[in-house]
Design a protein around this nucleic acid. Structure first.
Length: 557
RNA sequence: UGGGGUGUCGCCAAGUGGCAAGGCACCGGGUUUUGAUCCCGGCAUUCGCAGGUUCGAAUCCUGCCACCCCAGCCA
């Protein structure tokens, strides 16, 4: 297994711990705050935590770090659980909540107070900021720093009783205002928030801070390896400080890895929220969103997302992963697993004039060219077909391998045809191409030896169904839309969605199920929309196009 | 100018003193009833830079440079 997915520093650390007997049962956790939808960056974290636990026969918890009721709600709790499950992971035991431990956390706070290691501070938020100092200047002790334990205890209890206003007091650890690590300058442990909590209702008006909660939550749950992202590295001394000074026997240890950044993508919850507010996208699950829900609706598979996470590795360096890698992951999965079908996105009619009006034939076409075990599906063929307007030109150079007047082309899974002439509509656009079917070319080359240059897809006009096809593309046209001073809103790709209402698809596609993915041959991978697809309202989303070297050639000319 | 990190091909990433894996992207060629897939080949004399130690350094030492994170009663 380790050869399969390579090596990384976390795996090495855990392996050492297990081999040395330091750790007997590996326990990790994925600890999201329920204040938004999960995105591709979370997927990496989920993957890291669950896979590591699995690899070492351990377990992984799902814990909601719900210490800030103002930003959290049940909708997010529900969506997060759904997304984790959809990705294919099952957490160990019940869902955990930081709020399950509020009483214990409070007791520990009292403990610190009794030890003279925490105090109630009456500084306002503004004053507090001034006393904290700056990156280069040490902080100054709060005038309330030396209150007696009993006074602190009294004040803390009254904070809990709701006697004081929000912002008027906090409980702080007494560490050092001169620490070069700003997180150690008497950090806040509890703040007053008279806000209903989605889990605990109105039973609390004071809430623990992240720093005071996280390590202790880990200890309570017996977490052995607490894995988080790099920005928490400066908090580790504090994480350890609480464990050192509280009556806790478990020793979880924190390790940090580099957050995922992907080109042409933003993952800031605030900014993603703005896209929704400004109606640039339809919601958290818009198929262009980098959220798990969005990617799911777009047609990504859990398998592809997991593969992607393996591909990018886990390190302590922070870089930007090319979104092309993500695109590769989904193409790779769908190429292997998606059944093929034919769909004409921009139809023009092809009439085979040498066939009788009533001509009708049926073929069995393989569902997958490289996997015969996936079976076949029935496709029908008649005098009138639809082909894509891009697949016909009245004249073209020899690089163009599709249908041209006087030339031949193979109809995928069917006969070779030769174009004769066109008919135009009132606007002068080609509306019908007339052609002849070359007899006896089903599964073999023409008797006259004149082969077809290329292959195009088609659908039978008699049996095809109209479908709505949504062509999605990258949401941004800049590789780092929110880097530095850039405003991501300036780089919205206006062509990130294109809706084709008149696509024509082969009859078998009326039998799809929502979220089923197909390769529309020569076009790309498409998925039946999770919500809007039904047998009488065919709606497909383009997940990703096929690799297109022809387009490169054309653009290069 | 304080503290904590990171620097290996365009991107991700192995490598942990013995002579630069792999993937993505890209470029050639072959197969092909998808201009797809697949297959074959190419793609870092060099590891941020400069010194030093060593028979030997991406790996050890010294100095420098660049970039990221931290001054929420957010997580």
């Amino acid at each position: 297994m380790e050869n399969e997915i390579g090596n990384n520093f976390l795996r090495r650390i855990i392996r050492n711990d297990v081999e040395s007997g330091e750790v007997t049962k590996v326990v990790t956790r994925f600890p999201p705050e329920p204040n938004g939808y999960l995105h591709i960056g979370h997927a990496k974290s989920i993957h890291v935590n669950f896979e590591l636990a699995q690899e070492f026969s351990g377990v992984c918890h799902l814990r909601f770090d719900d210490t800030n009721p103002e930003k959290e709600c049940q909708e997010y709790i529900d969506s997060i659980q759904e997304d984790v499950r959809w990705l294919g992971y099952e957490w160990h035991g019940e869902i955990r909540y930081a709020s399950n431990y509020f009483e214990q956390l409070y007791e520990w706070a009292c403990d610190l107070v009794d030890q003279g290691l925490a105090y109630v501070c009456d500084l306002s938020p503004e004053e507090s900021r001034e006393y904290r100092g700056t990156l280069t200047r040490p902080g100054v002790d709060s005038p309330y720093r030396n209150r007696s334990s009993s006074e602190n205890r009294d004040l803390l209890e009254r904070m809990r009783q709701g006697e004081f206003d929000e912002g008027s007091r906090v409980l702080r650890a007494k560490i050092s205002m001169a620490s070069p690590n700003i997180n150690l300058r008497d950090p806040v442990l509890y703040r007053i928030r008279k806000h209903e909590h989605h889990q605990t209702g109105t039973s609390w008006v004071i809430y623990p801070s992240y720093d005071f909660a996280h390590g202790q939550e880990d200890a309570i749950e017996g977490i052995t390896h607490s894995i988080c992202t790099l920005e928490f590295e400066d908090h580790r001394p504090l994480y350890d400080w609480f464990l050192d000074h509280l009556p806790i026997s478990n020793r979880p240890r924190q390790f940090e890895f580099g957050r995922l950044n992907t080109s042409y993508t933003i993952t800031s919850k605030r900014k993603l929220g703005q896209l929704i507010e400004k109606n640039i996208v339809s919601g958290w699950d818009d198929p262009r969103m980098p959220t798990i829900a969005g990617m799911r609706r777009r047609g990504f598979t859990p398998n592809a997302i997991r593969k992607f996470c393996e591909m990018i590795g886990t390190t302590r360096s922070d870089g930007v992963v090319d979104v092309a890698m993500l695109e590769h992951a989904i193409r790779d999965d769908l190429n292997e697993n998606a059944p093929r079908a034919m769909a004409v996105l921009r139809p023009i009619k092809l009439v085979l004039e040498n066939l009788p009006e009533t001509y009708c034939e049926e073929f069995q076409a393989p569902c997958h060219p490289n996997r015969p075990e996936l079976g076949t599906r029935k496709i029908s063929f008649s005098r009138e077909l639809y082909i894509d307007e891009d697949d016909f030109r009245e004249e073209a150079n020899k690089k163009y391998k599709r249908l041209v007047i006087g030339k031949r082309v193979r109809l995928r899974n069917a006969y070779i045809v030769q174009a004769n002439r066109v008919e135009r509509d009132a606007d002068g656009n080609i509306s019908i191409v007339y052609a002849d079917l070359i007899p006896d070319t089903l599964g073999s080359d023409p008797a006259d030896g004149v082969k077809a240059k290329g292959v195009i897809h088609w659908v039978c006009a008699k049996t095809a169904s109209r479908a709505s096809v949504r062509l999605y593309d990258r949401l941004f046209n800049h590789p780092s839309p929110d880097k530095g001073d850039l405003n991501f809103l300036d780089f919205i790709n206006e062509e990130s969605i294109g809706i084709l209402e008149e696509a024509m698809v082969e009859a078998s596609l009326t039998q799809a199920t929502p979220e089923q993915a197909f390769q529309f041959e020569r076009e790309g991978y498409f998925v039946a929309d999770r919500y809007d697809y039904s047998a009488d309202n065919l709606v497909f989303n383009r997940v990703i196009g096929l690799r297109d070297t022809w387009q490169k050639i054309e653009e290069g000319v």
